[in-house]
Amino acid sequence: MFYLAVMITSAIIGYSASAEYPDLVAVKDGSPVEMFEKGIAELGGMGRFVKKDQVVLVKPNIGWNKTPLQGATTNPELVGAIVKSAYQAGAKKVWVFDHTCDEESASYKNSGIKDAVEKNKGFMYTGDNEKDYLEKEIPKAKILKKVKVHKLYLEADVIINVPILKSHMGSKMTAAMKNLMGVVWDRRFWHKEGLHQSIAEFPLLKKVDLTIIDAYLVMMANGPRGLSTDDLKQAKMQILSTDMLLADTAAAKILETSLEKIPSLAIAKELGVGKMDLEKVNIKRITLNSKDSKDSKDSKK
């Protein structure tokens, strides 16, 4: 019912004035799923992005063989909720995959994402087969002139990028743009030829329709793998935006890193990936005052 209401209202608003959607929605103090439901409603509902019979790719971060509590991979309930809502908006098929760093089947399983996706009738796909990657050219790029990209990323009608926010010992931060490194085959090339430049150039290949940054558990240090739960902070936030760079800029603030320290952001802005000036855009800030948030505040003390 909730979704139906969201869809109807979004349809009405969508026809009347699409410009009224906020550029970025930031939600705080709810469970990842609650924050998603609230946030996507503010953005006009999933129906704004997914039309009937479209093929959707949801790209979470499943890079490591870690459990959800270790904060290295995207929250599985959130991924499940996105898959579900994409189907409710009329998607024909929802794919989920990542080119994992650790062994794939263990990472898919232990992250809880495989279960969550399949429970919601989504489909997991392997990112571990070089044959699935097709060579593409990015004419505007300096380094990534040629890049082997996964066919699901190229073929999908709608791409929903669902990274988890973490600090990173190479790229300084991993969020939306860095998460797309999981749809390419040869990541060593990026590391060798210029990591920041490559991260900023890759979004030029294809537009990502929606970015949802999971900042519920944020890895503040020793990322992207993390050494222990001491590296984590329970920020209980989520950022939703159609502008990947804008979402990343806001995420950097949560990570408490100055923007100059993350070179890929400035490069991406120059390349026209998106906006960076948070003051000038329309941000919708929502704090969910659920029971859940009060409990955690008490327990912190």
């Binding site: 990173h168 190479g170 790229s171 590391h191 020793n222 793998r225």
Partner: peptide, 16 residues
């Protein structure tokens, strides 16, 4: 140039 691939993959924090 920034890389950090080793530190990224290290599970024990031996590489940082």
């Amino acid at each position: 140039k920034d890389c950090g691939a080793c530190a990224e993959h290290c599970p024990t924090g031996a590489a940082k």
